[in-house]
Simulated assay, not measured.
Amino acid sequence: MASAEAHTVLPRPTFDKPVKVLIVVSPYYSDIAKGLLTGAKAELDAAGATYDVVEMPGALEIPTAIGISDRRSNFDGYVALGCVIRGETTHYETVCNDSSRALQLLGLQGLCIGNGILTVENKGQADVRADPAGQNKGGGAAAAALHLIALARKWSRETKGIGFMPRGEDTLMAGNPGGNTTT
């Protein structure tokens, strides 16, 4: 059974501009997914965030869905929700490791992702972790995404001043047909 040790919960971040989050959930174990989703939605609602929900067949598709969304939409952050329960084959390790690694790589690229994909030995462990009145791992994943969004906004600027920046219209650029010329 899951440990009931107390842990620190950070205060919910506040935002001066609207926050839009995509929740990507796998309903493979629908009752577990429902609990995770309920917890995540409640946390996002409490923070005043808006969200959309998309479903994917399994945990392995969740990072791909987030990557596609990041390239083609305008979400501030993402919440990944699902459950992988150990079975009789090594497929469990593959799904756990690959989905987690892919989410981590997306995060290292700058995406704000709360990982709520449960990796458990049995359904009883999943039930405790998914229960919004229990360990509320869905709410915890949403909170993690919100904290990452707050951090990204804290350190963002209109321009970062990295690389070459044009100085203005009087700057000559190579390959600029019809640009300013001097005689």
Rank of each mutant, 00 (worst) to 15 (best):
L36D: 07
L118S: 00
T38L: 08
A65R: 14
T119N: 05
G58F: 04
H91G: 15
P63W: 00
V21A: 05
P57D: 14
V54S: 13
S69I: 03
L22Y: 04
G87A: 08
E88G: 08
V19S: 08
A80L: 02
E93T: 09
R101D: 08
L10H: 13
C96E: 05
P57Y: 13
K34T: 13
D76N: 05
L60P: 14
R12K: 14
L106C: 15
S69K: 11
M56I: 02
E43R: 04
E61V: 04
I113M: 11
T94D: 09
I66S: 12
L103G: 05
P63N: 00
C96W: 00
E93A: 12
P13E: 02
Q104P: 03
T119V: 03
S73V: 10
E93Q: 09
L118Y: 01
S26W: 05
E61D: 04
T94R: 03
A65K: 15
C83L: 09
A42E: 07
N115Q: 14
L103N: 12
I85L: 10
K41H: 03
G39D: 00
R101M: 15
Y51A: 15
V24C: 00
I62V: 06
P63S: 01
A102I: 15
N122G: 13
S99Y: 13
G48S: 05
E93R: 12
L37W: 10
D76A: 00
E61S: 04
V53D: 10
V25D: 03
Y28T: 01
L37E: 12
P13A: 03
L22F: 13
G114F: 07
D70P: 02
G107M: 08
P18S: 06
V84E: 02
T38R: 09
G82M: 14
A40D: 05
A80K: 00
R72M: 03
Y29M: 11
K20A: 06
H91A: 15
G82K: 14
Y78R: 05
I66K: 09
N122Y: 10
I66G: 05
R72L: 07
G107I: 01
Q104T: 15
S99W: 11
V120G: 07
M56P: 03
G77F: 01
G39M: 04
I23P: 03
P13H: 06
D16W: 02
T94G: 05
I23K: 02
C112I: 00
Y92M: 07
G114T: 10
T94F: 15
L60C: 14
